[in-house]
Design a protein around this nucleic acid. Sequence first.
DNA 1: GCGATCAGTT
DNA 2: CACAACTGATCGC
Length: 705
Amino acid sequence: MSSETIKEGGDAIVSSDTLESLSEDEYEIVQVYSEDVRSEEEPARKSKEPPGQEITEDQDDIVEEEIVDEEIVDEEDIEDSQIDGGRLDEPEKPSKPSCLNDSRVLERVREEEEIRDESEEKDNIELTEEEMACLDETIEVAQDASESTKVDSTKKRRNQKGFYGKKASTESTGDSPSTSRWKNRPMPSFKLIPEVDFVVDGFKYKNSRYDTYFLTHFHSDHYGGLYKSFKEGTIYCTPITAQLVIKQLKVHPQYVKSLEMNVVHHIRGVDVIMMDANHCPGAAIILFKVKGSYYLHTGDFRYDPKMKLYGPLQGIEIEGLYLDNTFCNPKYVFPPQSTAISEVLSVVKKERGKSTLFLVGSYSIGKEKVFLQIAREFNMKIFVTPEKYELLSCYMTEQDLNKYITMNPSESDVHVVAMGFLNFKRLWELHQKCKNKYDKIVAFQPTGWSFGKTIQSVTKKTAGALEIYGVPYSEHSNYNELREFVSWIKPRVIIPTVDCDTPEKVKDILSHFTQLPPDHSKSSLLPYFNKIKSTISSLFTSSPSPSILKEQEMILESIKIKRELKVEEMNSPPPLFDPTEEMTQDSLNESQGSEGISEASSFSQVSSSFSQTSTSTSINGSQMEPIDLDTPGDLLVQEQRRILESIQKIPNRKNVSGGKRKMIQKEERKGKKGKTRGTVLSPNGETNVNKQTSLLNFLRPSPKK
DNA sequence: GCGATCAGTT
DNA sequence: CACAACTGATCGC
């Protein structure tokens, strides 16, 4: 009955694991994963549930017995059972009201939650499954009280064939509304490559003025505004992203051009190179060479020292760096991905073979390294839903798919589920259905952040037989990595691309890069570059060959040695340039500012905790100094300020109040005179030659002592 | 009716 | 809060 779903999604899928071959039990599990996280499951079950379902009488009794202890009946109980009234009699249902209305349980849970927030790691909450299971539910029901009575429209979408989320797509013309709210908004300058007006990840502002678009990767916050009606020009992206854009968004292929990685492409007189961004499959860092100036757009990326091996980045001066500054704050220091993954692996290792079901949270694109590593390490298959399979088929080889992936839940004890599935309510429900097979469920939630602070190690929440691990696995660079990256690139100008819609924010972001540790690896690398050219394309692929790994290790090791040598030289370097020489009164005034100082100072405390890279040396941390924006000579700040002024502020209704907006506008006017984006991003050299030089020098190791 | 967009939630 | 996905509501053709 679901074969259509599969056909629809992946032509390439040739798998024996069709849903048709699944048993009722297996099918039900698939069904559970595919259900909307926030909608009720009953309607679907109603139509499908065979008489011999998994929830046996015995189990139900147990559930009920356990619940009886907690049973408190009140009016809401009755209300609730009325809501349930029209549905199939679900034996486990009585647990819902009884738990639900036990305010003591709730209170206790909330208390413990608070405690959990305060204590750093591994919390064992002494609650029964039922107590835990009803937590999420209680909150939800409270929120949905008004909605729960209406017949949900989502049910309609879930007919039997389209059960896995995709409606059979209607071939409509897809005309976009002529009065799109975004269409006429000005393109923010941080989405434009100067001189040529290439648009990067700026589909929300698409406009007849622009016809050359780049998409760095397939995440909704970057392709936002891109629909199948796209006709404005050409979209350039990596082959994987191109496939996803065409398959998922149904953009007409004639508008999508895929650019092979690590190869120079000539587009409208501009040289363009796509390089692996180490973010999600298909994600690219893009290097543009425009009229002799280089601009590097990181898209979203996780810095890795291996990026220093990128051929195209050797020995060039980057004019503008468009930076994914997501975690640009010293509080975001989390371990390398490899650390997070090995922690996951060790948990799996420990629990394996104990009739444990493992769940791994995943976005539609991204975080797949976590479960693929499990697959490789233990040489096993991983269960995914058909939608996920469809996505995987866009970037995994058929060989790997066959080797590591299955759509039959009973073929694997490691299941990939949507991130939103990972709450105790869902897990508890799932466990009810598979108690006879699994004693325990262990879930992994890979995320770069957690409740306001980053986590250094896995955290564990336990409720009976259910465990949820928070895994500090991020696909963005952490603070230290950002700084290391920038100090290596030494751009003349940094253009932040995240959360940069007010001058204050941009200023804060930039303040983290005003003084960086020296980095000599670029120059020291050149002799080695020839050697590693061939490995460039496989730096981040899923399974580089052992010989390539070995080679990389050696190269990185030699870089490390070089860098250590250079650090010693650093102690008395000849001054390249004294920034104070060129100070003007104007810049003295402009470089006044106090923001960022405290944060910068606190950096030294965390800098040592994760020196983030296997190759980092004592350079990291020890050479870093608190940022002092009051120091005259901070030309970078001054120059960057021009950027903020030129950035077209996008009114952000959510964050900017009317009054504040006025302030911003005022400030904008003030700094406007004679300053255009062109001046900032690509000075023609007439007026800015000296400053340009000085900035370049300033970003190089500042002569100290 | 449906595509595009936004606010809210996880 | 920052991620990114997803839902439902609403606007407008």
